[in-house]
Design a protein around this nucleic acid. Structure first.
Lengths: 341, 341
DNA sequence: TTGTAGGCGTTATCAC
DNA sequence: GTGATAACGCCTACAA
């Protein structure tokens, strides 16, 4: 049995079939379709249909033509928040006829650099980046090459790029206001190590400012969540310590909420009695105990906004470099039993 | 200020800088590096380094050279199970120097067809498919074009492709054995509509066979999970009906488990008293009530296996078409309080 | 071991 | 409106 390696049809074959030139066929599949005579259009449409023609994106990406490709760098694909944002990015891309190429860095700066180079080698037309480290050099190279960039949440050094994300300052204020209103007076703030990651920094700083301004007592645990021993220890101490003031744990993101919930469960703490509030809404928050109070981020909107920034950049691009901007979204509080005493 | 649209360096510039030919540079970046003299290698390495050269994947994907691109079609990116498998696929790709392009179809057959054509237009070297509908025609076209295909879980009509997934028959047997051993005698099987989706079919069929063989009473609710009213009604009826035999709900996948947990909570049912067992392990299953018993799938392994199949196909490809095969993985039971009375 | 020449499928330029 | 023709950056016979 012979190999049926049926070659993919090319623009040339369509041209022949439609008694037209390559140019016309190319035009038909580009923005310039209108410039063709109705008759020509029908012929090409029919021929393409018959032959099942599809432009080869690799080829069009080569010659000045656009690759129609957007790249996205995700720090942790298993984080539901990242996926939700990605979903928004994806939809916005689809609506614009763009394809999305997603790379997961698994929180590894080395992989991040590698992926960045990779995406560049595919000549993506824009890049949405949820960074782990600080690949300033690589990003700067991309910017100079003319690739529009959008950073999710964390802003990076000198890089000329838009930043889209949550209004972390107000988010933290909302959280603290709610906890205070519910009568919690001693707080434990739980976060992964902030290092350079700017949103974690912002949230942490605001936590400190916020408790000071409100006269609340507070402490902080900023260790890798993987170190469950340290975590259980910290939470255990916090909960067991004698005090007359109700206590609550404030989690900086979804992962922290998961870790805290596990720890509290292991300790046999009753949610609400020990308060619990997490940033990021998750499927299961309503199902655990009396429900976990969360601060939901408008994930889809964030994703869409990222693509919008990209496109705006591309339009205006070339001539003058627009100033880097910031787009901030507001969180919304979902009160549940974990902050009801 | 002039636009700094610094052109990306090409193979030609590297060649000049290294006093070599394009061919040699090309060889350096391909499998044939060893054929170059040590001196030549050093010169090229240095030049490439200096100029920050990276081969343009678009260009190399054009001429017979490989695109180094693997495509993946995901039915629902927000399903943690899909993401976990994707993570395995991703790792396997990385280890082989392949890039992964992921497309989410949002459970829409139309988008599925669209994305398939898209991936084809990028000349992917292999495709991992988690199908929603039955895009037989599109897939057949890809196969004939020589693209290796791997289907996740569901097998599709006549298409010549490997299938990787869970051993659903044994998984259901494990579930039923466990439920019976724990003393549950009446079961409600909860699934999304099976239609053509073969794993759902398989699981449903085995459920019917299994309860018959074991002398258990059973019924089935196969409606879209979005219809919460119907769902609550069904579960409410099931739970409230007078009977002397303990009852349990068996969920066909993670989404069903989520929906069932919500419904049971709304009904005020106590987990364990009403049994609950779900296929697919999720972050939160250990946290709800006494914990939800699950059947975990080896997701990473499934993803990796998919890529392995792809590669095997590509190696042996061309000459003779290997027979389509099936790779089955075993689930593992994680017993928790939801099936303890 | 190294280089030359042609072609991959498309788009851009410039004629007609 | 339409169509030759030259790039685009790389790979691959074929030569040397």
């Amino acid at each position: 049995m012979p190999t049926t390696t049926q070659q993919r049809t090319t623009i040339l074959e369509v041209a022949r079939e439609a008694r037209a030139s390559k140019t016309s066929v190319s035009r038909y599949f580009s923005e310039e379709r209108e410039r063709l005579s109705p008759d020509m259009q029908t012929r090409i449409a029919a021929a393409a249909q018959r032959l099942g023609y599809r432009p080869n994106r690799m080829a069009s990406g080569l010659k000045g033509g656009r690759s129609r490709l957007i790249g996205m760098l995700v720090a942790d694909i298993r984080n539901p928040f990242s996926v939700a944002v990605m979903h928004g990015v994806e939809q916005a891309c689809r609506e614009r006829g763009l394809s999305l190429m997603v790379c997961n860095t698994d929180n590894d700066p080395a992989q991040e650099r590698e992926h960045l180079a990779l995406l560049a080698s595919y000549r993506v037309e824009g890049l949405v980046i949820n960074a782990v480290g600080s690949p300033d050099r690589e990003l700067q190279a991309l910017v100079e090459q003319g690739t529009p960039l959008v950073l999710l949440e964390r802003e990076l050094g000198e890089v000329e790029a838009e930043v889209v994300g949550l209004d972390n300052v107000r988010a933290l204020d909302m959280a603290l206001n709610h906890l205070q209103a519910q009568g919690y007076g001693e707080l434990l703030y739980l976060s992964e190590p902030p290092e350079q990651a700017s949103p974690r920094q912002t949230r942490l700083t605001r936590f400190h400012q916020g408790i000071a301004a409100r006269g609340l007592a507070g402490e902080v645990h900023c260790r890798p969540l993987g170190d469950t021993e340290a975590l259980h220890h910290a939470i255990g101490d916090f909960v067991a310590r004698p005090s007359t003031v109700p206590r609550a744990v404030l989690c900086a993101n979804g992962n922290a909420t998961l870790a805290a919930t596990r720890a509290l469960r292991a300790l046999g703490a009753r949610l609400g009695e020990v308060g619990l509030l997490g940033i990021d809404e998750l499927d299961w928050c309503e199902l655990v105990g009396p429900g976990i109070t969360t601060l939901a981020q408008p994930t889809e909107a964030i994703g869409r906004a990222a693509v919008e920034c990209l496109m705006r950049r591309r339009e205006g691009g070339g001539e003058r470099i627009a100033p880097a901007r910031r787009v901030h979204f507001q969180a919304s509080l979902i009160p549940r039993g974990s902050t009801r005493r």
